[in-house]
Amino acid sequence: MATLEIKDLHVQVETESGPKAILNGVDLTIRSGETHAIMGPNGSGKSTLAYSIAGHPKYQVTSGSVTLDGQDLLEMTVDERARAGLFLAMQYPVEVPGVSVANFLRTAKTAMDGEAPKIRTWVKDVTTAMEKMQLDSSFVQRSVNEGFSGGEKKRAEIAQLELLNPKFAVLDETDSGLDIDALRVVSDGVNRFTGQGDRGVLLITHYTRILRYIKPDFVHVFVRGKVAEQGGPELADRLEAEGYDRYLHESTGA
């Protein structure tokens, strides 16, 4: 049983006109076995939350804490966080020219486990993960994300999720830009991951569409850098019917 705990998190970024606060006191607790959906309008700070947890240097945490089983994630480097059990599926996966997917995956797996994977089973694991995500086996010879379509990039992220099998996965708008078939493939991948029973997911999305395939245990509505409302899956249904307008009006009025 593991816990990812975010307490009163405040985050800012540097802009041309000085520092700008984006997260204004986020509280969230995710336990293994739980899937939390974070929904919110554009610019509400959803992606900032994802990148701040993962340790992107662009985002400065000004106060608050993020812990994984009591360990202070904010004190760790990006790679230490990953090795502690955190995975971020990015909205815009980065191209790394000249580095093959095969080499990248093997290096990542070795870093995670502290030892190189056994060649025979590893090759099979990679092939299986690619097949499940309906990525051609030739993908492993290509440079990481280079020349991949938007959908292929997202599917490759979930293939990595399956292979690295972290304790907690933060999925940052993994559904955006996917057609319905790709959305199903990606959702199946996430469901296999959560199906293990002891993994936690923080699913960040703008749309309710993916929640037809991935059932969240909790839904949090994110507005202006903090959680404005939370509830169960029924909250997603309400958002689908009403949109975010209600929250936006409330907060402008405040």
């Binding site: 790679d79 980065v94 990248f104």
Partner: peptide
Amino acid sequence: DDEQLFYLRSRGIDE
């Protein structure tokens, strides 16, 4: 490229 380094490191690969 900081983004490339971030991406690789977010998969547990040290700097």
